[in-house]
C-alpha cells in the first residue's frame, strides 16, 4: 500500500497548522476571559459627566431610649437633588 496519498495530505495540513499557529502567536494578545451570568438588568447611559465630587465619611451615634435587642441598621436610600 502506498503512503504517498496520505503523506500528500498530512504534510500540507501540518504546514498550514504550524503557519496558522505561528500567525496566531504573533497577533493574539493576552487571553480574553468572560465572567458571570447575566441577571437580566441593562443600563443605558444618557449623560455621563466628569465633576469634582466630595466623599464624606459620616459617623452615626446611636443612643437607646429604652432597652433594644439586636438591630439590623441600614444606611441607605440616599435621596438628593442636583442643582
Amino acid at each position: 500500500m502506498s503512503v504517498r496519498p496520505f503523506r500528500n495530505r498530512i504534510v500540507p495540513a501540518t504546514a498550514l497548522f504550524l503557519a496558522a499557529g505561528s500567525l496566531i502567536g504573533q497577533v493574539t494578545p493576552a487571553t480574553r476571559y468572560d465572567a458571570g451570568p447575566q441577571n437580566d438588568t441593562s443600563f443605558h447611559p444618557i449623560e455621563v459627566t466628569r465633576q469634582k465630587v466630595t466623599t464624606t465619611t459620616v459617623l452615626l451615634t446611636l443612643s437607646a431610649k429604652s432597652p433594644v435587642p439586636e438591630m439590623d441598621l441600614q444606611f441607605s436610600g440616599t435621596t438628593a437633588e442636583l442643582h
Binding site: V48, R50, V53, T54, T55, T56
Partner: peptide, 13 residues
C-alpha cells in the same frame, strides 16, 4: 468626619 474632594462622575441613564 473624614472628607475628600476629587474627580468623579455624575451619571444619568
Amino acid at each position: 468626619t473624614n472628607q475628600t474632594v476629587g474627580d468623579g462622575y455624575v451619571v444619568k441613564g
